[in-house]
Nucleic acid binder design. Structure first.
Length: 570
DNA sequence: GCCGTTTTCGGCCCGACTGTTTTCAGTCG
C-alpha cells in the first residue's frame, strides 16, 4: 500500500465515523492524518520501519498502529467495525457537494436512502424537501450538485493519474526487449483531467509486454487482450489501454495515441494534401513506402513541420504557427525563480512553518518565496495589526537566512462583497506582495463579480489577482465574471493574474492564459501551498501555462527578484 | 485521536454563506 492508499483508508474511517455520529474531533484527527500522509514525500512503510512515523504531527500511537495494520493486512479492526454499521453507498453520497454527514444521515434514517441514485430520486419527487430543515431550494441544489458529480465521474485529476501512469510505464519498461515505453493521450498533453491512460510500448516481441501488463500492480481486471493491445481497469476505476508497436514506428504510434483527435486529423489532412498517408504505423508515400515513423520529429518533419509540443496539440492554431516558424518557446519548470503564493501556520489551515517552507523552496532551487497568509475574513486570518507583525517576523527571518531563498512579506487578502479589500491600505503598502482573491459570495451575478474584481485590480494596493475564477475541478463551477474586463482593468495597473497550481484549481485555465497573453497582461504561476510539500505543485501550473502558449517572458516569477520588484511596482 | 501540560485530562478554528427558519443548522473552507 502506498501513501495515497493509506490516506484513503484513513479518510474513509473519518467519513464513516462522521456518518455513525462519532466524535467530531476524532473525525478531524483521522482526516488531518489522511491529508498529511497523502502529501508526504516519504513512504509510510519506510517511516514505520525507521520508527519515526509518530514524529509526524497528528500521528499518535493509535493511528501509527492503524497504519501498521493497513500495511500488513490492508485494513484495521476499527475500520472493519465501523464499515459494518454504515451502508457503503452512503460514502458516495457524501461526495456530492452540499451534502454533509447530517444530510446524508437524515436521508438514510428518514427515507432509507443509501445511494446517489436514491438521493436524486428523493430530490425529484419531493421526499427530501419534506424532511426537517430541508426545502425545495435545498433539493434543487443537491440535484444540480449530483449532475456535476456525475459529470466528473470517470475523469481523474492529472495529479492523481500521473503517478499511476508513471508506475505502469516503469513496470512495462522493465520487460526484456522493450526499447521505449511512454504514456500518451491527454495525460501527455497535460490536460487538467484524464479520462483514461494510453500507454505506447516499443518492442519487437509483444507477447512478454502483454504478459507483464496482465500482472501490473493495481490492475483489477483485463477487459480485452489481444496480441498487441489490451484494455484493463485499475483499482481506482481508471481504464488503461496498452499498445505494443515495432520500434521502427514508435514515433508514429506515440503521435497517434497522444492526439488530440482534432490535431491528428489536421496533421493527417496535411499529409494527404502532399500525397502521403499517416497512421499509427507511420507516414507512407503513394506507393506504400514508409517515409517516417521512428520518432515524432521524423513524422512532423516529413509533413514539413517542426516538432510540436504535446501541450499545444489541440488544433487551436498550432499547425499554422508551426508552419510559419512561430511556435512559442514554452515556459519550463526550471524557468521559475520563485513562488508568490504560499501559506504558513501563521494563519488559516496551512500546516508548515516559515522554516519548513523556506527549506522546501531551497530544495526546489527557488530564489524567493512570498509568504501570503490569509487575512481577517478567513477563519484564523490575520487582522491589520497581526499582519503587520507577521510581515515584521518574515523580514526578520529573511534577514537571518543564509543562501536563500529570500522571503517576501505578503498576504492573500480577501476581495469583499463590495470589491474593497479586508486590510487597510497603509498595511498593504508596507508589504512586498499582495495577492487579492475572492473567497466569499462566489455566486454573485456576473456584473457584480466583474465589478468586485475590477475594483480590486484598480485599488493600487494589489499585485496579483489570485485564483481568479474560484473553480474547483469536479466540485465547484467557476464564478461568473467577464475576464476580458478584468484583464483590461489589470493591465494599466500592472496587476498580474495568477495561475494557481493547486491540482484541483488550475485557475486561470489554459484558455484564459492565452487571453491574458494576447492582451499583454502577465501571469504568475503560484503553488498556493498549504503545506511545504505542495510547493512541488508548481509543475501543474507550468503545464497549464504551456497549454496556454505562455513563454518565459509571459510569466513574472521567471524574473530575478529585483526585476520582479520593478515589474510589480505601482 | 492528538497534543501539551497548570503533565494524563480537557481542549481541539471559527466565520461566511445558504436555506431554513424567525433564531439557527448544516456545509464549507
Amino acid at each position: 500500500m502506498e501513501n495515497t492508499d493509506l490516506a484513503q483508508a484513513l479518510a474513509e474511517m473519518a467519513d464513516l465515523l462522521e456518518l455513525s455520529g462519532g466524535n467530531a474531533f476524532k473525525v478531524r484527527a483521522y482526516r488531518q492524518a489522511a491529508e498529511l500522509i497523502d502529501t508526504h514525500p516519504v513512504p509510510v512503510a519506510q517511516l514505520l520501519a525507521a520508527g519515526t512515523l509518530e514524529d509526524l504531527p497528528g500521528i499518535g500511537a493509535h493511528i501509527r498502529q492503524h497504519l501498521a495494520d493497513l500495511l500488513a493486512h490492508g485494513s484495521f479492526p476499527e475500520l472493519d467495525a465501523v464499515r459494518g454499521q454504515v451502508p457503503e453507498g452512503l460514502l458516495e453520497v457524501l461526495r456530492v457537494e452540499g451534502v454533509g454527514p447530517k444530510t446524508a444521515l437524515a436521508a438514510w434514517k428518514g427515507l432509507g436512502i443509501t445511494t446517489v441514485d436514491g438521493l436524486e430520486a428523493a430530490c425529484r419527487d419531493g421526499a427530501l424537501a419534506g424532511l426537517p430543515r430541508m426545502g425545495a431550494a435545498k433539493a434543487r441544489n443537491i440535484q444540480k450538485a449530483i449532475e456535476r458529480y456525475r459529470g466528473r465521474r470517470g475523469r481523474v485529476l492529472l495529479h492523481r493519474a500521473l503517478p499511476v501512469a508513471e508506475a505502469l510505464v516503469r513496470h512495462l519498461a522493465k520487460v526484456k526487449g522493450v526499447e521505449q515505453a511512454e504514456a500518451a493521450g491527454s495525460l501527455r498533453r497535460r490536460k487538467e483531467t484524464v479520462g483514461d491512460l494510453d500507454l505506447v510500448v516499443a518492442a519487437k516481441d509483444a507477447a512478454p509486454v502483454m504478459a507483464a501488463f496482465r500482472t501490473a500492480p493495481d490492475l483489477v481486471s483485463v477487459e480485452a487482450s489481444g496480441p498487441t493491445r489490451a484494455t484493463g481497469r485499475l483499482r481506482s476505476g481508471l481504464q488503461v489501454d496498452v499498445r505494443v508497436v515495432e520500434p521502427d514506428v514508435f514515433g508514429a504510434a506515440l503521435h497517434y495515441f497522444t492526439g488530440s483527435k482534432a490535431h491528428n486529423i489536421a496533421v493527417r489532412t496535411r499529409a494527404m494534401k502532399a500525397g502521403l498517408k499517416l497512421s499509427e504505423y507511420g507516414l507512407f508515400d503513394a506507393r506504400g513506402k514508409r517515409l517516417a515513423g521512428r520518432t515524432e520529429e521524423d513524422v512532423y518533419r516529413a509533413v514539413g513541420l517542426p516538432w510540436i509540443p504535446p501541450e499545444l496539440r489541440e488544433a487551436q492554431g498550432e499547425l499554422e504557427a508551426a508552419e510559419r516558424g512561430r511556435l512559442p518557446d514554452l515556459v519550463e519548470l526550471d524557468d521559475l525563480r520563485g513562488d508568490l503564493h504560499v501559506h504558513t501556520r501563521a494563519s488559516s489551515d496551512a500546516k508548515s512553518t516559515l522554516d519548513e517552507v523556506a527549506g522546501e523552496a531551497r530544495a526546489l532551487g527557488l530564489a524567493y518565496v512570498a509568504i501570503t497568509d490569509h487575512t481577517r475574513s478567513r477563519p484564523l486570518g490575520l487582522d491589520d495589526a497581526a499582519l503587520a507583525a507577521h510581515a515584521k517576523a518574515i523580514r526578520a527571518a529573511d534577514a537571518k537566512r543564509h543562501g536563500g531563498p529570500r522571503l517576501l512579506a505578503g498576504a492573500e487578502v480577501d476581495i469583499l462583497g463590495d470589491g474593497s479589500l479586508d486590510i487597510a491600505d497603509e498595511v498593504l503598502d508596507g508589504l512586498d506582495l499582495v495577492v487579492a482573491s475572492v473567497h466569499q459570495r462566489l455566486n454573485d451575478a456576473r456584473e457584480v463579480m466583474t465589478a468586485r474584481m475590477v475594483k480590486a485590480a484598480r485599488s493600487g494596493h494589489v499585485h496579483v489577482l489570485g485564483h481568479p475564477s474560484n473553480r474547483q475541478l469536479g466540485t465547484r463551477d467557476a464564478s461568473d465574471f467577464d475576464l476580458e474586463q478584468v484583464i483590461a482593468a489589470a493591465k494599466p495597473k500592472h496587476v498580474a493574474l495568477e495561475v494557481n497550481a493547486q491540482p484541483d484549481r488550475l485557475d486561470l485555465t489554459d484558455q484564459a492564459c492565452r487571453l491574458a497573453k494576447a492582451e499583454g497582461v502577465p501571469v504568475v504561476i503560484s503553488s498556493d501551498a498549504h503545506h511545504a510539500g505542495q510547493l512541488e505543485n508548481l509543475r501543474y501550473g507550468v503545464w497549464v501555462a504551456r497549454r496556454g502558449w505562455l513563454e518565459k517572458k509571459d510569466v513574472l516569477n521567471t524574473l530575478p527578484l529585483e526585476k520582479l520588484r520593478a515589474r510589480l511596482a505601482h
